[in-house]
């Protein structure tokens, strides 16, 4: 059995950067967006690492990373990601950010996937993050799945166990910190990943060098995709001003603090 796994993974500003919305010509944008260091979307990165592990278990399998974003930023992020796992890159050059419409992003990704030569859709597992750290909508991957005609979809996935017959068991996050367990007959399927169970792989220069044979050419031939907004209009985008009047209690003994806290816990 072999798998064809396509991981859709966008790039987002490094999560701890200062973000500030500004009014751009096409709606809101982030201040100094091109200056901010970017990383692979964290949940999508989990998907990539899980995919690489699966591919390594099933000889003959292949892994593509489909990424949409400004080309220069994609190039930078790839220099980090390409050291971690082996993949073939499909790059789509687009001025995408969290304010862009998810369905337009999905169309561009689906076109990119449809154009992958040698992709066998009967073996296709479409991976990605269940939400992004930018738009955080949980819409893109599902829509790509629909556009590709895949009707077995999973969201908030933390684990997949492939079986020899091609079927697999999958754990999805549901309410209350629990997982829903399902068995799917097999590919094609869409899996939107949460954090999974794998640590971030180490940087491996040999993997990096092997990936470079496809990464740079893929970036060089990345097609530009203009994203439409599907009638979406932003009326405002702002930072919250939730400054509280903090009471700082410095000189109270732990026992007295505990007393106060217990009273607070017990109030309705």
């Amino acid at each position: 059995m072999s798998l064809h796994i396509v991981v859709c993974a966008g790039i987002v500003p490094d999560p701890l950067q200062t973000l500030e919305p500004i009014a751009g010509p096409n709606g809101p944008a982030l201040k100094n967006e091109m200056m901010l260091p970017a990383v692979l979307d964290p949940w999508a990165a989990s998907a990539l690492y899980e995919a690489a592990t699966l591919v390594s278990k099933f000889p003959g399998s292949r892994l593509w990373l489909v990424s949409l974003g400004p080309k220069a930023k994609l190039q930078q992020v790839m220099m980090t990601i390409a050291q971690k796992v082996t993949f073939e890159l499909v790059a789509v050059d687009s001025a995408s950010n969290g304010f862009a419409d998810a369905s337009a992003t999905a169309s561009a990704l689906a076109s990119g996937i449809a154009a992958i030569p040698d992709l066998d859709r009967t073996k296709l597992l479409l991976f990605g993050g269940w939400e992004s750290a930018s738009r955080g909508a949980g819409v893109t991957l599902q829509t790509v799945g629909e556009l590709l005609g895949i009707t077995d979809q999973f969201a908030g996935v933390d684990q997949i166990d492939m079986r020899e017959d091609g079927s697999f068991e999958v754990l999805e996050r549901v309410e209350g910190g629990k997982h829903q367990a399902s068995v799917c007959a097999g590919a094609p399927a869409v899996l939107g990943w949460a954090t999974g169970n794998l640590p971030e792989p180490h940087n491996n220069p040999q993997i990096g060098m092997a990936n470079m044979r496809t990464v740079m050419p893929a970036l060089q031939r990345a097609k530009q995709a203009a994203l439409t907004n599907d009638g979406q209009q932003y009326l405002s985008a702002s930072l919250p001003s939730q400054q509280r009047q903090t009471r700082v209690v410095r000189d109270l003994a732990p026992d007295a603090i505990a007393q106060e806290l217990v009273e607070w816990i017990r109030t309705q």
Binding site: Q75, M79, T80, M209, M212, M216, L219, Q220
Partner: peptide, 10 residues
């Protein structure tokens, strides 16, 4: 890096 000759690995 865009040329592909040089690889800079962070």
């Amino acid at each position: 890096m865009a040329s592909g000759l040089v690889q800079i690995w962070p």
